[in-house]
């Protein structure tokens, strides 16, 4: 029972971080209807920019994070302006391919600037862990979970109650209709990419603080959450969080309790789950069901 509780608590905490990454996918999809496969690379850029400020420029860590955020916003806006802007009105696959092109280009730029050697932040979160009964939970994970939940709340408020948020949702729903009522799509897209890049940067910094930085393994965290984003529904913020937590839980619980099915089931479990869910509910658990017309 102790083991089970411990695994659940860890799964929840790590899952919250995955949820934050998943949120990046959802944000861009909600505003522009694009599945951004370069999410992992956006995370990597955020994490490395924070590394530049905190280690290379010797700025205190929290100040460095504060400096990273505007840079990340700028990167998001630049990517939208110079790459995704040309993709308005293009077929789905071209847009996906554009994000793949970005993914490869960004990996190249990061490798060029920062090399392939692993890098480390200064000690960010305290290494000690807190004990609640028999369960140990480290402050690192608590911080990660707390930050993730904080951002999720902000986004829920943003999309539900602010004008920009509503405008973004309208644009994602129907670009042409949005245009016809006087919404500047370009502005909306630019904003959404900037915000998504910012989210990704926060996710990247958290992961960097947990396991360190290197240019080769970051992209995999982005792809890891992809199935659960779809599980929740591409346009559902709570879906992303629940999906993220789900993947955190499977990663921790599956090897312990389904280990008899063979090793590595934790990598497969999300995909099998998402396949089953998608066959029953084609738009994910919380996704918006679209009514198609000819």
């Amino acid at each position: 029972m102790d083991t089970f509780l411990q695994l659940v608590v860890t799964g929840l905490a790590v899952g919250a971080t995955y949820g934050l990454i998943a949120l990046g996918f959802v944000l861009i999809y909600k505003a522009s209807g694009v599945l951004n496969l370069a999410q992992g690379e956006l995370m990597m850029f955020g994490a490395y920019i924070c590394f530049v400020f905190s280690v290379q420029a010797n700025i205190p860590f929290y100040a460095a994070v504060a400096l990273t955020l505007p840079v990340a916003l700028l990167i998001g806006a630049v990517i939208e302006r110079f790459f995704l802007r040309y993709m308005i009105g293009q077929p789905l696959i071209s847009v996906i391919m554009m994000t793949i092109g970005l993914m490869i280009l960004m990996r190249g730029i990061a490798t060029w600037i920062w090399g392939t050697e692993p890098k480390v932040y200064p000690q960010v979160f305290p290494q000690e862990s807190m004990s609640i009964g028999s369960v140990n939970i480290s402050y690192e994970y608590l911080w990660a979970a707390g930050l993730s939940i904080f951002f999720v709340l902000i986004y829920i408020i943003f999309f539900r109650f602010t004008k920009s948020g509503l405008v973004m949702r309208a644009t994602s729903d129907d670009e042409h209709a949005a245009l016809s009522i006087g919404i500047s799509i370009k502005k909306v897209l630019s904003q959404s990419w900037a915000i998504a890049a910012l989210t990704a940067a926060v996710g990247g910094i958290i992961i960097g603080a947990l396991v360190g930085l290197d240019t080769t393994s970051f992209p995999q965290y982005g792809l890891k959450v992809l199935p659960v984003v779809l599980l929740g529904g591409l346009d559902s913020i709570p879906g992303a969080i629940i999906g993220g937590i789900l993947i955190g839980l499977t990663e921790n619980l599956v090897p312990e309790y389904l280990g008899f099915l063979g090793g590595g089931m934790e990598e497969l479990a999300p995909y099998i789950l998402v396949l089953i869910v998608l066959i029953v509910r084609p738009h994910g658990l919380f996704g918006l069901k679209r009514i198609e017309r000819i």
Binding site: Y86, S94, M98, G101, M103, I104, R107, G108, T111, W112
Partner: peptide, 24 residues
């Protein structure tokens, strides 16, 4: 030397992106 390791990524990424922009 630093650029060498990144060169293939950069050339490929740019090739895809430029193609999609100029000849989608």
């Amino acid at each position: 030397a630093g650029f060498v390791q990144a060169s293939r990524y950069i050339v490929f990424g740019l090739a895809i992106i430029l193609f999609l922009i100029f000849e989608p």
